[in-house]
Amino acid sequence: MKTLSVPNLLGIKHLVKEDIDLIFETADHFKEVINRPIKKVPSLRDITIANLFFENSTRTKLSFELAEKRLSADVINFSASGSSVKKGETLIDTVNNILSMKVDIIVMRHPDVGAHEFLSRHVNTKIINAGDGTHEHPTQALLDSFSIRERLGDVAGKKVVIVGDILHSRVALSNIYALKLQGAEVKVCGPVTLIPKYIESLGVGVETDLRKALEWADVANMLRVQNERMDIKYFPSTREYTQLYGVNKKLLNSINSEVTIMHPGPINRGVEITSDVADSDQAIILNQVENGVAIRMACIYLLASQIKQ
């Protein structure tokens, strides 16, 4: 019988290959569950989960909430706007107050890098990272790899290029860790200003020419330009960015190999990806969303199994 090697899901960096295999095996079963006429299992009927979102989220929050409800957990939601955080309450105080209401698992998104690590050292509960600043977004990386595995059969040996704003992307970092752990080859592609200086130390290649990157790749994961995290101007104009790093049908058709297109959302149609690509069979964007629920069910289930009665 297998269990995760970690007590919390803080980031892919802390996982081993066997953890990812176990999460995928479990997610396979949950994917079957969410396609049944009745999509709910009673496993977590005595578990309470708090979703703490200190930063905006649509699909991740919905996906987690749905995953929790499909597992029959009791769910409470918290968003920083309109909470006591605005009145000056510290993170530890906020979380401890929630935990005194007998909450078993915390799912948290926070704008500060390392907020989850910090919290895990100060509170006694299970923590799942739903995104911390520009650092990690482990469940997104897991669902991305799961979707690659589903489409291409395996992740090992596949060539994946992550295109766009690598500098501000937690999706990129978690994906790099996850893909490397599973034996994929990874390149990042984007304007040099949006590629972190020492990214190659993670064992990934850098390509600034999108066409060359796509010709090399089996999979292209297109990232959104995160204007909200940019303190300075990293490229001259959105129009220029789109011309150099936006993927469109004409570009894809001119490439010999079939590249699978992914996007973690939200999409800026016409900027990093055009509608004819996003809505094509080449794109697995909606599969990623569906798989997100199964992956999150698996992560929650496996962590909950460590909480002894």
Binding site: M1, T3, L44, D46, S305, Q306, K308
Partner: peptide, 15 residues
């Protein structure tokens, strides 16, 4: 996922 001994066993349940 329907068992009543989830979290009550020494070993985890794999599906």
């Amino acid at each position: 996922f329907y068992r009543d001994d989830f979290r009550r066993r020494d070993e985890p349940l794999n599906a």
